[in-house]
């Protein structure tokens, strides 16, 4: 048996730090939405468990998808395709992290939060990675539910139940996922085609994908302003959601209209990058006002 030369940074790459960042921000929003602020240590520990659970999902995804990752430019430098870590090592790493994250969340917070985290990991690894990703162009639509669950897990950890507010945040991330990934898929059609992943542009065609991006963008903008409409976010948040939402739709219309050559790829990638800004800014704004609320309650 070969002796490993894997370094800590290889294991760090396995937990997909960029995805984890988004999970931390959205789960923190869920924790801070609790009407009664949760204890700082409990909140921080819960957030850590959710982040580690998300990281474990990422590692298990890389374990299962090593064949696909090896043929796609975006993922070819991941630890398994480059041979820095073996598949059995990654499987063990992912399972241990998953178990640890779920059990610790149970001890730190409550059974509901732990069960929701376990379900999130199961949904991402088994339902999305093992089944949907290779089976249907709706893969990232349904699979997006896993990425949208962290605010619900965070809220459950802080309160012991689930309410409308975290469900709205779930809806926001759920509606955001298709235009975000399909914008990338439009610019990377060949890559996904080579890997045999049935992404929407490869199966239904680029034009159909552009239409669906536009439809989901409109749904996203409507859900984006719901936190203000339902009274759990301020008018400042509402203004951000509206302005950024209009820009999101404008860019989706551009993607819908510009269909040929390098310009089409450029517009699609521009929507992809903007979608990241959209989600980060909205959640950052929500976090700021919830922190102000929590500080006010604790005074």
């Amino acid at each position: 048996m070969a002796i490993s030369t894997a370094e800590p940074r290889d294991y760090l790459a396995l937990v997909k730090p960029r995805v984890m960042q988004l999970v931390v921000i959205t789960a923190l929003a869920g924790i801070l939405l609790a009407p009664h602020p949760v204890n700082f240590v409990i909140g921080l520990s819960s957030l850590l468990c959710i982040a580690v659970g998300a990281g474990a999902s990422g590692a298990l995804n890389m374990w299962y998808d090593a064949d696909i990752d090896a043929v796609m430019r975006r993922t070819a430098k991941r630890p398994i395709p480059t041979g820095r870590v073996t598949r059995p090592e990654v499987l063990a790493f992912g399972i241990i992290l998953s178990g640890f994250a779920v059990l610790t969340l149970y001890l730190v917070a409550n059974a509901l939060a732990a069960a929701l985290l376990a379900f999130t990991i199961f949904f991402y690894v088994v339902i999305y990675t093992m089944w949907l990703k290779r089976a249907t162009p709706q893969n990232i639509v349904i699979g997006g539910a896993a990425g949208a669950l962290p605010p619900i897990v965070g809220y459950a950890a802080a309160t012991g139940h689930v309410d409308v507010a975290p469900l709205v945040l779930f809806g926001l991330i759920f509606a955001w996922t298709p235009p975000h990934f399909w914008a990338l898929a439009l610019a990377r059609t060949t890559d996904y085609g080579n890997a045999g992943v049935p992404m929407m542009p490869n199966v239904k065609g680029a034009d159909h994908t552009r239409l669906e991006i536009l439809i989901y963008s409109l749904i996203l903008v409507a859900i984006g302003v719901l936190p203000t409409a339902l009274g759990f976010a301020s008018y400042v948040y509402g203004a951000f959601a509206l302005v950024l939402g209009v820009e999101f739709v404008r860019r989706s219309i551009l993607v819908f209209r510009v269909r040929e050559g390098e310009a089409a790829n450029k517009t699609a990638m521009s929507l992809f990058w903007f979608s990241i800004v959209y989600l980060y800014v909205l959640f950052a704004e929500l976090l700021v006002e919830r922190v102000i609320y929590v500080v006010g309650v604790l005074r």
Partner: peptide, 18 residues
């Protein structure tokens, strides 16, 4: 016994620290 190469030694030390 097994003699580790300098690279294997270094990565093992880093993993242990982590």
């Amino acid at each position: 016994g097994v003699t580790l190469t300098p690279e294997q030694m270094r990565s093992r030390r880093l993993r242990n620290i982590a």
